[in-house]
Simulated scan of single mutants.
Amino acid sequence: MNVVLVSASPKIKEKSVSKEFLEMAGGQINADLYSKTFIDVRKSFLTQNLTADFETLANANIIIISFPLYYFCMPGMLTRFLVDYHNYYTARGTVKKNVKVYAIVNCGFPEPEINLEAVRVIKSFCPHINAEFRFGVLIGGGAMMIAAKDAPFMKKTLQNLKSAFSAIAADIQDESSTIMDSINIGADFPFFKRVYYFMGGRGWITTARKNGLKKKDLYKKPYRLSE
């Protein structure tokens, strides 16, 4: 049985959070039962290795796709990759059917539910390649989780992550077709949300000042209809 783990972070040299989550998920899969192959979408485009990677996908029994949220959806690079794979799939004709697909999506927002629309896109794509979408793991505050993974306050969150990735490994081996709900893993520590919203607010204030505005100007509603 072939498991293909697809990392779809647009980053080239920087450390990829999506890849780290993918490696964590791959580590839960029994290597004695499944062969594991990694595909880096960014490298696939840069090295023009698309045909070989599409062949690997076409022979997969399980596909796990990990990517960061970009503008509330998938990175454009991943969209292009999947469209090109669909064209390859259609032209090839003979491809494994009933492939299980999972998605791991992370964002910088504290709330994991923000990733849901991106997961829906992957789910909608699956029938076009005769694949079965099983469920997604939606992660909020992904970069923070990786940066502070050794901190004591991260223990519970990391346990939740491990449980979510273990659920993927268990479902891979389960032959039932029971519908699974997506698993949400949020930044479950209050100070993160406070710091996140504080820094976000400071960003707006700084931008306003650069454009000759004051903080109070951010609260104006010039286009609101008069009652």
Rank of each mutant, 00 (worst) to 15 (best):
F21Y: 04
F81P: 00
G140L: 08
A187E: 07
Y219D: 14
Y71E: 00
L116I: 05
V195W: 15
I114W: 05
P152T: 07
E175N: 14
I185P: 03
N98D: 15
P10R: 07
T178K: 15
I205C: 03
A131Y: 03
A31V: 08
V17W: 11
I183R: 05
K11L: 11
V83W: 05
D84F: 02
G200Q: 11
V99N: 01
S177Q: 11
K220F: 08
K215V: 11
S177E: 12
A91L: 09
C107L: 06
S166P: 00
N106H: 14
A151Q: 15
P152N: 12
L78K: 04
Q173D: 15
D171E: 15
Y219Q: 13
M24I: 02
P75C: 02
E20I: 05
L57E: 09
F192S: 06
K96M: 09
A164F: 04
I104N: 03
S35A: 13
S9K: 12
K193Q: 10
D53T: 01
E23R: 08
I146R: 14
R92H: 08
Y70M: 05
A103I: 01
A167N: 12
M145A: 08
V4G: 05
F189G: 00
G26C: 13
V95E: 14
D84Y: 02
N211G: 00
R80D: 04
F81H: 04
Y71T: 01
G201A: 14
K100F: 06
I114C: 03
G141L: 10
K97N: 01
T206K: 05
K19H: 02
Y197W: 04
D181L: 10
M180Y: 01
L218D: 10
Y70W: 09
A8H: 06
T90M: 08
I62E: 09
R202I: 09
M77R: 01
V195Q: 14
T94D: 13
I104L: 10
E111S: 06
D84V: 00
K193C: 03
K149S: 12
A52S: 10
Q159L: 12
S66L: 05
P127G: 09
Y88W: 10
N2H: 14
T56I: 12
S9Q: 11
G201L: 12
S18C: 06
E132D: 13
A148E: 11
A164M: 04
P190G: 00
G203Q: 13
I205P: 00
I64E: 12
D53I: 02
I205V: 10
D150C: 06
S124M: 14
H86N: 06
P152R: 14
F198W: 06
S35C: 07
L33A: 15
S66F: 02
V99S: 01
A187P: 03
D188S: 10
E20M: 09
R202M: 14
N106Q: 15
V83S: 11
F38Y: 15
A52W: 00
I185F: 11
G136I: 02
N106K: 01
G27A: 11
